[in-house]
Each structure stands twice: as structure tokens, then as C-alpha cells.
Simulated scan of single mutants.
Amino acid sequence: MTAHTPAPRTRLTPEQRREQLLGLGVELFSSGSIEEISIDRLAEVAGVSRGLLYHYFGSKQGFYEAVVQRAADDLVVQTAPIDDPDPLARLQRSMTAYVDYVVANEQGYRSLVRAAAGGNEALRRIYDDARLALTDRIFRDDTAGDLIPDTPATRLVVRAWSAYAEEAVLDWCADPRGIDRAGIVRLVTDALPALVAVAG
């Protein structure tokens, strides 16, 4: 079933129904802004009433926040580094997965970045929590802990680098001419140890 094909009405447990609605919401979010998700259309596709959707999420805003939270959780999970003794290889794998995630969910990701910058406090919190999860694991052994010492200076550098990586990948998605996927991954990956070296 796609997000455009109404589902036959079926009995699901409350948890299954909630997961179904979240899945459909994330699917729609990946290709458009959160505000473009039509609650009426979503209810029709899921084969449920609009009232039932509100029963699970409280309000349209509650549903939007749950969808964005699920998308952010997916980003953190999908960019988890591989088990490799080389910290640079772990970082590169994580950044490759990040680029792939942004490419696959470009419009929704842009929507989240805009909403977080635009003053929506709930979405800002979700965005900040996801970014913190991504940057904090740089200092643990699972990403690049052997490569980057944990100091106040390097934490500042990593926070700035994460903003650079996000902007670079989004700009590349908008205009990829002259650089391929491997090139953008290399560009954002190699920048981090270089910046850390400058910070001493």
C-alpha cells in the first residue's frame, strides 16, 4: 500500500494502528513539508476516521510532532556507524548514511530545518535533540572517539561542523553539479579532522 491508495478497513490493535499512522505520516513527510500532510487524506488512506487519528495523537499538532520525532529517531538509527577499528572509516560510514538519509527525505528534512529555525519550539526541541545525539556520539568509541579528543574546544568545533555538514549536503542536494555522492561524503567527512587539527 502507498500513501496514495486508501487501505481497506481492517482491525488493528491500538499500537498497530498508531504505528500505521506514524508510518504513513513519515512517508508523506519525506516528500513534502510537515504542514502539507493532510489529516483528512491520511485518515482516508489509513482507512480510519479523522477522530480516531486525534484519539491517538491528541491534535493535528500532536500528530505532526510525533511524525517529526519518528523521522528524527530514524535519522539517528540509520546513521549509526559500523563496527570498524578505524575511527575515520566509522565517521565516513556515518556520513554516507547521513547523505543517503537527506537525499531520500530531502523535502521533509528541509521542512524540519526551516521549522526549527522558524520558532516552532516543539520541532526545535526535536531537531536539537537529534543533532545532539549525532554530535555527542562523535566523542564515543562508536563513531570517532579515537580520532577526536573530548575537550571544550573540540565540542565547539563539532557543533559548528555539524551545521556546516547539514548546509553543505542540503546545498548539494539542490545543485549536485560537479560533485558526486562520494565527493560530498568525502567533503564533509574530511572537514572534521581538519577542523579539529586547527583547534589543536
Rank of each mutant, 00 (worst) to 15 (best):
T10V: 14
R17E: 10
R18I: 07
E19F: 01
Q20R: 15
L21E: 04
G23W: 09
G25A: 07
G25R: 00
F29T: 03
E35R: 14
E35G: 10
E36G: 07
D40G: 13
R41K: 13
R41D: 14
A43Y: 10
A46E: 08
S49M: 01
G62R: 01
F63K: 08
Y64Q: 15
V67K: 03
A72G: 07
A72E: 05
D74I: 00
L75I: 03
T79G: 09
A80T: 12
P81M: 05
D86R: 08
P87M: 07
L88Q: 10
L88F: 11
S94V: 02
V99T: 09
Y101D: 01
Y101L: 02
V103H: 05
Q107K: 15
Q107N: 15
L112Q: 05
R114I: 13
A117V: 00
A117L: 13
G119P: 00
N120K: 07
E121V: 14
E121G: 04
R125E: 14
A130K: 04
L132W: 08
A133K: 13
A133V: 09
T135D: 02
T135V: 11
T135W: 01
D136P: 03
D136S: 11
R137C: 06
I138G: 03
F139M: 09
T143I: 11
A144C: 07
G145R: 07
I148L: 05
I148F: 06
R155K: 08
L156Q: 12
A163D: 15
E167G: 11
V169Y: 00
D171L: 15
C173Y: 05
D175P: 02
R177T: 14
R177I: 10
D180C: 09
A182F: 09
I184M: 06
V188N: 03
D190R: 09
A191I: 09
L192K: 03
L192H: 01
A197M: 14
V198Q: 12
G200Q: 08
